[in-house]
Amino acid sequence: MPFDPLSPSSDETLLARYAAGDPRASAELAARLLPRVLNHAQRMLGDASEAEDVAQDAMMRLWRVAPDWRSGEAKVSTWLYRVTANLCLDRLRKRRDLALDSDTEPVDTALAAPDILQEQDRRDALQAALNTLPDRQRQAVFLRHIEGLSNPEISQIMQISARAVESLTARGKRSLAAELENRRDELGYEND
């Protein structure tokens, strides 16, 4: 989300104001952070309704942690991305467990994605391709190439080394390119 010049307070300052009882701080923080959290959850889960639940849950954790927030230790957005990612991974794990318990084929997220044959735009096709990536690759590609975060930030969010981030994003991008190559027609690109 673009930085709002009318609201120069940092996320951390706003969180401190919220913890001090300022009733306007939560609205400002939510306007700034909720779209990013929701986008992250949507990209990870590929399901709008589940993503909303995760976003609400992640924000609730932020409100609860506010009084104990230790200034200068982590960026609020980084912490929130990590919480969101963990919540999404939990849900994805449960999905897989359910699929295995019911003795059915694992959910093919590519098939579960919206019908992309005719009317869906490229974003949907990209999301469908992202859904075919392993969870960690998808998360790394999303954070690096869609959210535009730096490798050190991503390594903090995913709690892995910067080198592991590089490896994940590179492999993820290769897989994504291969997947999108198969969907060339759906994307509206002409074959060479």
Binding site: A20, L34, A55, M60
Partner: peptide, 14 residues
């Protein structure tokens, strides 16, 4: 969703 989030914030705000 925004309203739910703000309601949560209000409910647990110190």
């Amino acid at each position: 969703l925004m309203q739910r989030v703000l309601r949560d914030a209000q409910a647990v705000q110190p």
